[in-house]
Design a protein around this nucleic acid. Structure first.
Lengths: 232, 232
DNA sequence: CAGTTGTCAAGAGCAGTGCTCTCGTTTCTG
DNA sequence: CAGAAACGAGAGCACTGCTCTTGACAACTG
């Protein structure tokens, strides 16, 4: 809050920032497994034990990186959405999808840290929850606003969600307010489809199968848009 | 092939099997990161360097585990499909989906090894490709047979796939033979939706969001079935 | 201004990892 | 049966995260 109280605190904040920065670069080049406190210390001209004055353990550094990552991904999706006309709901959905995918392709290791296999021995603390919701909040907002504007025309597809899903639907309405139950779950299906595609593509499962990745991705996202009733 | 030629070869095969078995158990309890050649050797009462007579490196052991994993997952999906009446195409799709999900829930670390973030520094050799295709082959077969039986009634959803996807569609027909281009890509969308759900659920992204997981999963898979025209 | 208090980097050290090399021994083979 | 191939044991290298102690310095306080 009050910037630069004592000189000590200033230099401490600066060093903390520098550590996370080097860590982020290590993460980008080597992946989560290659993140080494000793290597960071070496690069900073410090001795390894000194790092522990700033981050009590490797996991705490990871938590910082994860929170930053969720924020970066959330911001990327928010910006992609914000660049579209407010009432072009299918366009906003596609832009958000591309925003997520482009960010993931540009930061594969960071994406893997967030949405890939959990790091062994690491358990995410509660602090990671709010930033994790930024991107899905955007998708929920698009859907909610489209519904409110009467721009949602979901085709009949499957039987209605069974009654046992009522509680979950209510829960999910925290990010997809006001939507009828059926649409909530179509939104979830689209959401899992989006992340499923990006994950499979990034983790190499589409190799030797699909070459025109961006085109195929967009087509798939258009299909999912139609499932939600967002026909463009 | 010819069982037990020399005594040496017999004991070698047995030890190799024992190593992979312990490794699989380590993988199941600790995850891919906790896989330690030294720990395996310790458990076998051997010295660590002796392991290298059987697996030249940790990566080679990983490759074996990965191939076994793809085969196990493929077999699980095949069995789930085989338990259904041949002409109940929606039922077969749902069974295959549950087969995959149930296997993944029962073997989370193994699933993570296959479909999660790639292990740092590890690059899958070509041997992993054929077993990797077993599960998607099942899904492709269901779709192909349903189409051949005239049981596919895909609803109009999105614009047709653009012409630039022609080559990819041809490629994908190796596992989804005879299907029109549009259906090939709807199949891909369903496929990514299936793996997306399982991955997100397994990697904890559905925590505090969806409680009735199995029900919600099945509903989502029904929706994807309807997208492919498999209405049950 | 002097003295206490807290913060800091440094270094040694522990237990663990993958992997390599060498050295006798055992087992198979020509 | 002799030579070759395979094998287990052990020492050792370079690396990891992390802990503990030590001595120096800066920041507050009487």
């Amino acid at each position: 809050m009050t910037a630069s109280r004592t000189a000590r605190e200033r230099v401490r904040a600066e060093l903390t920032r520098e550590i996370t920065e080097i860590a982020r670069r290590q993460l980008a080049t080597e992946g989560a497994g290659g993140l080494s406190l000793r290597a960071i210390a070496r690069e900073m001209g410090m001795v390894s034990s000194a790092i522990y004055r700033y981050f009590p353990s490797r996991d705490d550094l990871l938590t910082t990186l994860i929170i930053d990552g969720y924020n970066a991904i959330g911001e990327a999706v928010e910006r992609a959405d914000a660049a579209c006309p407010r009432d072009d709901f299918p366009g906003r959905w596609l832009a958000a999808c591309h925003g997520l995918r482009d960010w993931a392709l540009a930061n594969p290791h960071e994406y893997a840290l967030l949405y890939g296999s959990p790091v062994p021995g690491y358990h995410a603390p509660q602090d990671t929850v709010p930033p994790r919701l930024r991107d899905v909040t955007v998708l929920g907002a698009i859907l909610r606003e489209a519904y409110a504007a009467g721009a949602l025309h979901p085709p009949p597809l499957a039987p209605l969600p069974p009654g046992t899903l009522k509680a979950d639907a209510e829960n999910l309405r925290e990010v997809m307010a006001d939507l009828p139950e059926e649409l909530v779950f179509r939104g979830v299906t689209a959401w899992t489809g989006l992340y499923g595609w990006v994950s499979l593509e990034l983790f190499g499962q589409l190799n030797n199968a699909i070459e025109a990745r961006r085109t195929a991705f967009e087509h798939s996202m258009r299909t999912l848009a139609a499932v939600m009733g967002l026909d463009g």
